[in-house]
Design a binder for these strands. Structure first.
Lengths: 191, 191, 191, 191
DNA sequence: TCCTAATCGAGACGGTACGTCTGGTCTTGAG
DNA sequence: CTCAAGACCAGACGTACCGTCTCGATTAGGA
């Protein structure tokens, strides 16, 4: 069926490209990374990069996730507030670290490139939302939360303020903020 | 004091540049706008643009706001929920319109350029937050809201999900969503 | 040793550049030729030109000589006067032709660019001086000329008035002038 | 007749422009002089320069001659050879001095600008040729030179090799060369 | 003393070309 | 067939001067 004629793709080359892409991203920021720079650093020809990725955003994103994929701990303390605090405190620590700040630039790049956006939604956000969903479901089961919650919207409620600060206001993200945020969302503004 | 030596700056030229910048932004999107394109469309020399703006992002932003500045209605129905619904429904209508979608790209550009970020914070977000603050304060005065609210954080709670959807998930923003969002935030997830 | 990695330089492109350069030189004169104009006419990118030549003067000069290199007849009539007349009459015909007039501008350009000067000395003047040297040497051997001549200085004596007229006085160069010039130089002003 | 309405032209301004033009010429060479640079150095507006001169070449030339005009000694020793030696040795000292080297660049500029050429012919060459003519005429009267000389062509014979070396070969000009040059021209190459 | 006309500085402006840079594509020859 | 090397076109970058054009402030002589 699918023949394998000719020289096979070199895994080393692929790794070198992703590593170079990630290094350049972390050294200079997304917008100053160039395909040419990646090719040079990786000791690879530009054509090889274009052969396997459609453009700079794709390589850099791949490089980022290749270097960043990590196990996400699933908190389960028996308390929604505490579980949420643990998850989002971890997240806020991550996204304010150098590694995390890059996600900012990738989200920005995603505004000009739907493929990129899809990618980080699937690889970055979905797994984390999955964990939040578990927390909320257990909370409902335990009666800590209202039964009628729209889970997806509820998850948005917590993620959103973090990224709003990150992308728009630039305000600090610390554990006090996370704690108060969760309190507000649980309690509501009313009454 | 402030001298007026030399040929005065041409207001027509300035207007032509801003108009051209805005038109190109709305036709092609931020990242395909070029200074050269603006210069040509405006019938203006590149040097003149560089004289008054440091780069593409600055001109385009200026062009955007010059074309977009509008009166913001201040709702005051006597009900926090209704006031917030009116404000944020209007906002969601705006940011899902062609004109509003551009703000997405400017926010993206702001990730690579602190000056830009500052600009849209001041010109776009601050006036709107000011209105929200008024709504919340009146709500507290009327006893509709908890007295101990941190106003800024509370405002974030409402703005954030809109822009989270806009920038990250891409989910739809309609009046049903706004209504439910406000409900959730007022009531809280708890109990 | 000298490796031949990578895509080889395109001879067609090179030719197109030189041709375009020469055409523009002959149409408009040296100082209105631009690299951008050459690139456009040749259907070539500016970067390609800058890759192989340091600047406009170098390309134009190369284009000029690529279009102009021709066989130089070596007169040998048995008479110094006649040989010199043939050589310099030919030369005067050439340098008053359109093709030849360009050399004027290249000499001018050479005043601001030593590399250019070196180039036309080697490619234009040296071969012609070589012929003159032969004529004079044969003349000395035949006893037509003084034995103690400094050949280089003597050659200067004939070339110089042609280019002096060309570059400075602008007086006409015709075969009568050449004849009289050679007479004067042979005879001397004295006595 | 010619009315003198309005503010009269400022002589100081004119002087400042010419001085600035000359200074910049001597510091950086003709081709790097700019009208803008002259205007700044002279503390003058560009428009004022364009009011009185058609372009850079004209101002610089004027500046050059304003700074350079000097008395030309008229040698009269009773010997043509000695007179010529004195005149051309002086000339060669001048044109190999910094001040004199600039004339090279002006001659180059003259290739692209007939007005410039006319100017230095009249202001630089004619006065010197006039002196040479006197020397030759006295030589003829004294019987040192042939009666049938074409004076203009004879003058060319001496000027030409100096400028040929200056503009084309770049060979040195020293008093030995001048002496031998005059000898050769007087004696002729023949016999 | 005011008026008129020209000069001048400052500096904005439309242009044009500069030389550089990156993006993507294409062409070799080696493996 | 893959790949490194690297030539190539396309086109924007930001800069530098060009020569022209307002401005407002002088600076005379003539009214």
């Amino acid at each position: 069926m699918d023949k394998k004629l000719g020289r096979p793709r070199s895994e080393e080359t692929k790794k070198a490209i992703l590593t170079a892409a990630y290094e350049l991203l972390s050294e200079n920021g997304f917008d100053t990374v160039t395909i040419e720079g990646i090719a040079e650093r990786a000791g690879v020809s530009k054509a090889t990069i274009y052969k396997w990725w459609p453009g700079k955003a794709a390589v850099v994103l791949d490089g980022y996730f290749a270097a960043t994929e990590l196990l996400l701990p699933v908190p389960d303390t028996g308390s929604v507030k505490e579980d949420l605090f643990q998850q989002f405190n971890n997240l806020s620590i991550f996204i304010t670290s150098p590694k995390g700040k890059m996600i900012t630039e990738l989200i920005a790049a995603g505004q000009f490139n739907p493929g990129i956006a899809e990618e980080y939604r699937v690889r970055f956000f979905n797994p984390r939302r999955h964990i939040s969903r578990g927390i909320l479901e257990r909370g409902i089961a335990r009666g800590e939360l209202r039964k009628d919650l729209d889970l997806e919207r509820s998850i948005d409620l917590i993620f959103a303020p973090l990224f709003y600060r990150l992308l728009i206001t630039g305000d600090t993200l610390d554990s006090a903020f996370i704690r108060e945020l969760i309190n507000d969302i649980m309690k509501g503004l009313g009454q």
